[in-house]
Structures are given as C-alpha cells and as structure tokens.
Simulated scan of single mutants.
Amino acid sequence: MLKNKSSVRIVSTDGTSDKNLMVPTVLLKHWKKIGISTLSFIFILCGSIVYFATIKKEQDITNKYEATLDEVRAMNRQLSSDQDESARDIHQVKQSFNKIDSTLERINAKMKKRGLKTIALQNAGGPVELDEENIELLSEFYADALKELDRKLAGIPIGIPHPGKITSKFGYRRNPFTNRGREMHSGIDLKGRTGDPVKVTANGKVIFAGYEGAYGNVVKVDHPNGFQTRYAHLSKTKVKKGQNIEVGTVVGLLGNTGRSTGSHLHYEILQNNKKLNPEKYFNF
C-alpha cells in the first residue's frame, strides 16, 4: 500500500523555485485521519504520563502519611505505656513510703520506751498530697528523717563492745573472791584474752580515761540522751579525756586490772546516772 506514491510539488511563495516530494498515496488520501490519530495518540500518551505521575505522587504521599501515622501511633503507645509505668511507679513509691512510715513508728515506739526523743515534726499540718511532681520532695523528707534516725541511733549504746562469752550477768551475785554473801554487779563481764580490742558502742565524748580503784584501767564515755558507758579492767586505754569518738572506736585493750579475778571486760551502761542491764542493749 505504501508502494503507490504520489508526487507533491512544493512551490516557494515567490515562484522562483519548486521541489517535488514523493509521498505514499495512502497518506495523502487519509491525512486527516492519520493526523487525528497521531494527535490522539500524543494526547493519550501525555495524559497517561500525567495520570501515572499523579498516581505515583499520590502513592508517595499516602506512603509518607501512613508512615507518619504509624510513628504517631507508636508514640501514643509509648506515651500510654510510660503513663502506665509512671502510675505503677507512683503506687510502688507510695507502698515504699508506707513501709518506711511503719518502720519509723516501730522504731519510735522502742525509742520512747527507752526515754528517747522520737522522730516527729512539731507544729506542723496541712493536706496530704502525693503525685509525680512532689515525690522528689517527699523522698528528700524521708532521707532527712532517716539521717536524723541514724544520728540518734549512733548515740545509743546498742551492741557489744567485745564478742566474749558472758561470765557474770547484771544484778546480784555471790562474791567472786570469797564465794560468800551477795553483792550488786552493776554491769556484765565478758571473757577474753589480755590485749583483745574493746570498742565503744555509740558516738560520744570521753570523760575519763585512766586508773580508778576497783575499775582498774577504765574508760568512761558520755553519749546523747543522758547515756554513759564504762569499760573497766583494761590492760591499756587507747583514748584520752575530752576526745570525741565514733561507734566502733577502740577505747582500750582487755585486761585484768583493778578488782578482777581474771582477764575480762567489765561493761556498764547508765542513763541519767541510773545503771541499766547492758544485755538489753545487745540487740535492737
């Protein structure tokens, strides 16, 4: 069909020159249809390109939107989880504070029985609040309260000055030298070897360190709340009068000086000049 051709003469506008162009006859017969088809194809092609480009852009926007939405959902889930965890933490903190309160109440009861000042706030009041914002302040309050408790307990002669066996208890006993009659034993005796370390049982100030009659070498220590401890029959004292010492400080070495039948430590506790049974202070 394309073999049949027709001659087309192209004449210039001034008529000076012309050209002959061989064109398939079918193109000349159907040039309108061919032109319309070509234009239609080009239009459809351009439309398809625009359509698919728009679809792709929409898909990209949709994908970005869904990705952003997933991130927001994840953040919401994390926020919800954090809120739940925060609520659990606050509940646990409340339980912990309640346990601390119960412990302080028991300690206060024991301190009160011993004539000691309890841990309390004077001239205070107001509504009780507990939320996430003031937990830090409440924690500081309990930290201060426990520091005060630690300070007070450090001044109470609790514990043993030497781990030896008790050979003579507090109270009346037979005379250890004659084995006759009875005498008041104002402390307890702890068996040990000469030279064993003897430790103070509370923070305090040394008011005497030296030789004193039946006590032999003795160290006397004043403590808060009217307490005093005495460590007698020492072979050697290790502290001086006026010295401030902390619980656990070695005040002397166990010995057999003064009115003694053998190497041991005579240990006394007094409060407001009244002699107490030291065994009751061996455990809190």
Rank of each mutant, 00 (worst) to 15 (best):
Q122W: 03
Y215K: 01
N272Y: 00
E85R: 15
T118Q: 07
H30S: 06
W31M: 12
H30Q: 10
R151L: 01
F227W: 11
I160A: 04
L153W: 04
P278Q: 06
E268C: 00
E148T: 08
Y65S: 11
K33L: 14
L153N: 03
E268I: 00
S139E: 03
G187W: 07
G35V: 15
P24M: 14
G262T: 07
P163C: 08
P127I: 00
Y51P: 10
L253P: 11
M75Q: 12
K57C: 07
L190P: 00
R88W: 08
M75S: 14
S260P: 03
K110E: 10
G47Y: 14
P163D: 10
E279Y: 01
K275L: 10
F97A: 00
A154I: 06
E133N: 15
H233Q: 05
P24Q: 06
K19F: 10
Y172R: 14
N123I: 15
S7P: 11
V250G: 12
K56A: 15
A53L: 13
I156P: 07
A143D: 15
K169W: 13
H264V: 04
G155P: 03
L116D: 14
D131I: 09
S12F: 04
G213N: 12
N217E: 02
K5S: 10
K152I: 13
V239W: 00
K280I: 11
L149Y: 03
V23A: 09
D144G: 05
T103Q: 02
F170P: 03
G187S: 09
H264M: 05
T237K: 11
L153M: 11
L130F: 00
V93T: 14
S40E: 05
K220I: 08
I44C: 02
G47W: 09
A145M: 09
T54Y: 15
F284K: 13
V72R: 04
G47I: 14
P224Q: 01
R174H: 09
I158G: 12
D222R: 11
N273K: 11
I90K: 04
G262N: 09
A232Q: 00
D70S: 10
E140Y: 15
L254Q: 04
D131L: 09
T249R: 05
L265I: 06
L104H: 00
G252N: 06
E279R: 05
H264E: 02
Y51A: 14
P127W: 03
N179F: 01
I49V: 00
T62V: 14
N108P: 12
L265C: 08
L265R: 04
P278H: 01
D189E: 11
S40N: 05
Q271W: 01
T249E: 00
S139D: 06
S7K: 13
L153T: 09
S263C: 04
N4T: 05
G15A: 01
F52R: 00
Y215D: 02
S86H: 12
N175M: 04
R114N: 06
F52W: 03
K56L: 13
S40F: 08
